[in-house]
Structure formats: structure tokens, C-alpha cells
Design a protein around this nucleic acid. Sequence first.
DNA 1: ATATTTTTTTAGGGGTGGCTAAAAATGAGT
DNA 2: ACTCATTTTTAGCCACCCCTAAAAAAATAT
Lengths: 217, 217
Amino acid sequence: MTTLSEENYLKTIYHLGQQGTIAVSTNAIAEKIESKASSVTDMVKKLADKNLANYVKYQGVSLTNLGRLTAASVIRKHRLWEVFLVEKLHFSWDEVHDVAEQLEHIKSLKLVNELDAFLGFPTHDPHGDPIPDKNGNYTLSKSINILQMEVGSQGVLVHVKDSSDVFLKYLNKTNLALGDAIKIMDFEPFDGSMIIQTNSNTINISKEVAKNLYLSH
Amino acid sequence: MTTLSEENYLKTIYHLGQQGTIAVSTNAIAEKIESKASSVTDMVKKLADKNLANYVKYQGVSLTNLGRLTAASVIRKHRLWEVFLVEKLHFSWDEVHDVAEQLEHIKSLKLVNELDAFLGFPTHDPHGDPIPDKNGNYTLSKSINILQMEVGSQGVLVHVKDSSDVFLKYLNKTNLALGDAIKIMDFEPFDGSMIIQTNSNTINISKEVAKNLYLSH
DNA sequence: ATATTTTTTTAGGGGTGGCTAAAAATGAGT
DNA sequence: ACTCATTTTTAGCCACCCCTAAAAAAATAT
Ligand SMILES: [Mn+2]
Ligand SMILES: [Mn+2]
Ligand SMILES: [Mn+2]
Ligand SMILES: [Mn+2]
């Protein structure tokens, strides 16, 4: 049985290292999880003892198959709960993350499977992230970052990389939402900013913002 | 902010001591929570430090107003989640308790209030226990224990005192469910057993079972 | 190649929440 | 009132998960 803390580490390693396949440094984990490298070293040893991670001193951490499956299960729960909160309980997409961080650790196979069915087997969460199936598998939709698109081309916003409430509140303020049709009007090489047009208005977005917006092919 | 463990202690003290109003012994708490009296002493000091409990050495523990409110909030969440699991996710009443034990500790005021609304503001959980409102208040329905009823009288099963899965599975097996009309056919003074009749059949129940069945006035 | 900086691990320690065993207080029986 | 059994607390310990500071290894610069 995995603890809450172990599950958070597994998720972090999964996200940092291509589903946990490539080794990540203790420092990188510490930064993401907002702890210290020494704490990470301790935990990573425990994960290795439990056959959840591969750990070689000074050479970083990756996940075992078991670790990967466990991480995917937590991520599956996180994203299903986010859908539940938005679709059924009137949460907006910037309010769900903290609650989902708690709910993702609830242990009940029946609960997650029934929830999945109750929600109509959703494939993506409110931020456009794919929901892994029971085996931890998902097909990544072939969206592309808005910075790679040609001026004059169009697409639909299907994914935001950053799910922090501060970023999502910014998008709310500028009236950008998942599903919006977007046309690239101009790109400024000096600072990487863009001018984009939605159904409702034309706005200027910084490169920082653009990095997080993904449109359907 | 209360921890998961603190919340479980508060709930236990609340249940053992008439909403926490009368002092309960460390031993009683230890037995209910399946820990040891020495562990309870430690925790109870912490609860007193946090102004959640009144504790006088060797004289047991009761709850402060804050402690009572916190306990009621946890119980509210427990029972709302039980309703959710049964009404929306096809759980049966003997499957909900362990999952609700986990879900009751999720911290989000918006979540519990939206859940309440989503469920249509239920007043009772799947075992007939009342759901406290936001202020911790509830009206106890005036059901009576089946052992107090006259032979020949009738009532509707509205509450089961024991919510353990082993007891509920027994009721399932004998085809007894909340809402069933029940007629008392006979009472045996020797062992306190009863013969009762439902719509579907006539059954003999032991005193142990009868103690846990409450019928509407 | 060697020195310096950066990264990572180890050593030692703190808070929480549990335990056992010993000591202290309480309560009952005579 | 005093003894004995029971209840409760205290003392000391452990696992978990985090920390800071020091040591060790690795990476980088000269
Ligand atoms: Mn999230
Ligand atoms: Mn998400
Ligand atoms: Mn319950
Ligand atoms: Mn219940």
C-alpha cells in the first residue's frame, strides 16, 4: 500500500521523466514537490525498496513498471475528479486542482471505476490533459503549441500545459477557454509575443502565455 | 487546521459522549478507535491545546464548541459522501463506510456544499443517520427501537444503528432494507428474539439484531 | 590535470502519531 | 481506613516524512 507522500513522489517522477522512463534528478523532484533534495533522497530509497522506482546513487530516479502503473492510477483519479468537479459540481477549471490533489489519494477501485462510468468515460480533463485508462494507457492527441503555428492559420484550443490557478484565472480574464477557435494574426520575433483572434476579441499574448497554449492540428 | 487523525478522534468523542457534551474515558476512545489508551492521552492533550476538547487528567474528555462543530462537519461530509456513493455510483449500503471514512477528510467548503446541492439536500444517509447542516445541527427523527414495540404493531424501518458491513450484509441476506414495512408478529422473552413480517417474508431475528433496528413512530 | 563550483548524499534532528512497560491515581471490597 | 484491582498517565521508544549542515561525488573551469 502506497502512502499519500509516496504517491505524490511517483506522480512527480512520472511527469518529469517521460512517464518515468528516463531518470530525473533529486533536485528536479525537490523543486517540483517543493521540498529539499535530502528529503527526496530518503523517499527515493523507500520507493526503490518497494520496487516502485529504479535508483542509482548520483544517477537519478526512474520508475519501475509497478511505479509507472501506480503513478498513472493516481493521475487517472486526479483527472476524473477534476471532470466531476467541473461537470457536476459547478467548479470552474481554475478551482479544481487543489481539491483533486486531495481526492486523487482516495483508495477504492470501485469508486474510480464507477466515477468513470458516471462521467461517461471522459477522455480528457478540464485542462485538456488525457485521462489514463485502468492500465495506465492513453493516446496523446496531436495538438501543437501555438508558437509553432504559421501566422494566418487557425485551430481550436484543446490543451493548456499550465494548470495553476493563476494562469487559468489569466485566461478567464482574457476570455480564453478550451474549445475556442483561435486565429494567429501576428508573431513578434523580438519578444515572442503573438496577436491572436478569438470569436469574441483580438488579444496580445506574451511568449510565456503562448508556451502553454496547444491547438488541435 | 485539523489533521486526519485529530478529526477521527473528534468524531469518536462526539459519538461516544452525546455530541461530545459528556466526558468520555480514554479507554472508551481507545477501544472505538482501535488504538491504546496511552495514545489517546497524547492526542487528547493536543486537542485540548487546540481548543477542540476539554480535558482534565483522570476525568475524561468532552468537546468544546469548536470541537463539536468540527466533528459535526466531518460527520456531515461522511454521510453526504455515503449518499453520493449509493445514489450516484451504485454502491450498496454495506460498501460505503470505508470509502466515506477516507472522503470525510477532504477539505473544501465549496465541495461539500456543492455536493449537498447536487444530492438534493438529503436529510439522512443510507443507514438512516441524520446529516448535520452547515452549523452542525440536525433534527433527530423520533424512531423507536423495535424491541420497544408491541406485538401486532407495525412500522417502517428508518434507521439501523450498526453500519458495519457484516451487519448490513446480514440484513441484505434476510432481505431487510431501509423503507421496509415491518409487522411485529411475536416476541420471545427467553432470549429477546422476535418474529417479524415484511412484505416479502416472515423471519426470526435475534435480540442482537433487534437492538439495531429502528422503526418510524 | 587540478582547482572550483554544483549536485547529491549522509548525519543528525524535529514533529506527528503510534506502541509497550512502568508508575501513578482512582475506585472497590473488606 | 487500607488493600487490591483497574484505569490512566508517564517514560521511553519507533516509523514516517520532513529539515539543516556537513561530507562526498560529479561536473565545470582553468
Ligand atoms: Mn490538476
Ligand atoms: Mn488537470
Ligand atoms: Mn458510515
Ligand atoms: Mn452511515
